[in-house]
Design a protein around this nucleic acid. Structure first.
Lengths: 170, 170
DNA sequence: CAGTTTAAGTCAGCCTTGTTGACATTCCAA
DNA sequence: TTGGAATGTCAACAAGGCTGACTTAAACTG
């Protein structure tokens, strides 16, 4: 019953990892890690007239080619006015192509152009490189735990979206 | 040697968790989880004239009372001008107190007032509640993995800052 | 078929939060 | 004691969120 550590519940389950101090460390870890997570693409984008919003749009258009504007809106969780500003510059600059829907002509389907793919690759190579190093240093079990906690942290709506994307790419 | 799964290295170490698809899922998990991570405090703050930047300042002033503006700057990773705007409103509104340094009068030492503490508690209760649920659902081993990966994802400079805070609060 | 709803886009204006540049004050070392 | 470095403040600007009002075109529905 007693595992030799300081605190156990009646059921023998150790809840030391749920102290306020542990939770605060988790919160701060998220804060600092997210900075690292976005640092590399941010650096690349700061040279151009683009920002993180453009990166997100490019990422998910690449992930789900032919997605509609409305669908992208839901994934990104911003207003259409906000997305539209970003999308307009990407289309003007020839990184994204917008095709009128065939079955429903109100819809626009979004695709990366060749240039768009080139930038996507550049950005995601940088971001994946960091993620790969972190994953390798941490090992497969830590990675599994990482993903378990992140999924539990999402809003249910976001979690559904995440799962849908995951299944589409697996 | 062959464990029945698709890919192993010569050393028998399975690197399936490092495929581009796995990395991309990790990237998307970070994106969606961070939204959940900030959602609750954001909701509370949207009713006031404050934003996420105020939350961050309040969090770290609470964490390291008496910290100087310069120190806070390094933790938050923004320019002093940007932080100053946030700090000024917090001071005007009586949530933060700024005391001129005794040994070095150029420095300002920052403290939360009673009202500041009240807001800090409200914000961090909300954020911790989500983190606690996520941690409990995932279990202690997943939490350990979560933190291992996040630490590996930080820039070395950020990692040092994170460790310093962690030790000061343990 | 008329009227309503839906998808997308636009314009205007606001807010938060980042940025740079210029500047005042204070400290310290040559 | 004076010049440079450090600290903090003020002003102005840009990115990227937001709301609200509106248009156009297409699809749906009674």
């Amino acid at each position: 019953m007693d595992d030799g550590r300081a605190t156990t519940t009646r059921g023998g389950e150790n809840l030391l990892f749920l102290t306020d101090e542990q939770l605060r460390q988790g919160i701060e870890a998220m804060f600092f890690a997210y900075r690292g997570f976005t640092a590399d693409p941010d650096r690349i984008l700061s040279d151009m007239a683009y920002g993180r919003a453009h990166h997100r749009a490019i990422h998910f258009i690449n992930r789900a080619p032919g997605t509609t504007v409305n669908n992208l809106l839901n994934i990104l969780g911003v207003t259409k006015q906000s997305l539209n500003r970003v999308l307009r510059t990407l289309i003007e600059d020839g990184l994204v192509e917008s095709r009128v829907g065939t079955s429903d002509k109100r819809e626009r389907h979004l695709f990366l152009t060749e240039d768009g793919h080139a930038l996507e690759t550049r950005l995601s190579d940088a971001q994946r490189a960091r993620m790969r190093t972190a994953f390798r240093d941490a090992g497969p079990e830590a990675v599994a735990g990482f993903r378990t906690v992140l999924e539990a942290m999402m809003d249910t709506e976001m979690h559904r979206t995440y799962q849908r994307l995951k299944e589409s790419g697996a």
